[in-house]
């Protein structure tokens, strides 16, 4: 009986080692177009009826600055602006929760501390009269033990909607969907 249990344990641990080894390799689909790519493109893109690409780019840079972003990179000839923003995201609720858990169970649970949001703002002329603007936001969140707990694209459509509303107000142009 005991021997059999040992056998089971060793099989399970072998599998675990195999699993760990698998995780270290690169997943095959990291550069594959995801099925939802069209939907994501629609969420992140608006079309403006103008041929003034520089006007859109400078309005985009000014808007990002208004929203508290620092401009990191820009290449006007390719229609690219890169910006980022660091924030303290400690929330009172989360801290109180952590303190209660620590008091009840004697276990320290780290809470979210820092957030970095990255944004790329890209313009692309579609023809003589229309320019597409695509903006993408990603965020990273670290907890109080300095561990990266979130590392992903921001997919809330409201954020993109609001951004484009502000942009179209700034350039006095209507933003059209794809």
């Amino acid at each position: 009986m005991v021997k059999r249990r040992h056998l089971g344990l060793s099989i399970v641990s072998t599998f675990l080692v195999f699993l760990c080894a698998c995780q270290a390799t690169v997943p095959k689909d990291v550069l594959k177009l995801p099925p939802q790519s069209l939907e994501v493109r629609q969420r992140e893109t608006r079309i403006f009826e103008t041929k003034d690409e520089k006007k859109l780019l400078s309005a985009g840079a000014a808007l990002l600055q208004d929203l508290g972003y620092q401009l990191d990179e820009s290449e006007v000839s390719l229609g690219v602006i890169v910006a980022s923003r660091d924030r303290d995201v400690k929330s009172a609720g989360e801290i109180i929760g952590s303190v209660i858990i620590a008091a009840l169970f004697g276990v320290y649970t780290p809470v979210s501390r820092n957030q970095k949001v990255l944004a790329s703002f890209v313009t692309r002329p579609l023809d003589e009269k229309r320019i597409a603007v695509r903006v993408t936001f990603q965020h990273m969140v670290w907890d109080t033990s300095n561990k990266l707990i979130k590392n992903e694209i921001i997919d809330d459509p409201k954020i993109y909607q609001e951004f484009f509303e502000k942009l179209s107000k700034a350039v006095f142009l209507e933003a059209h969907g794809l």
Binding site: L33, S37, R41, E73, V80, A119, S120, V122, T136
Partner: peptide
């Protein structure tokens, strides 16, 4: 961008583009 990257740098003279995809 379609593949989920955020562009980090672009330089037409050098002819290079760098980006990062974050998905976990």
């Amino acid at each position: 961008q379609d593949l989920g990257f955020v562009i980090d740098k672009a330089d037409e003279t050098l002819g290079s583009v760098s980006g990062t995809k974050r998905s976990g």
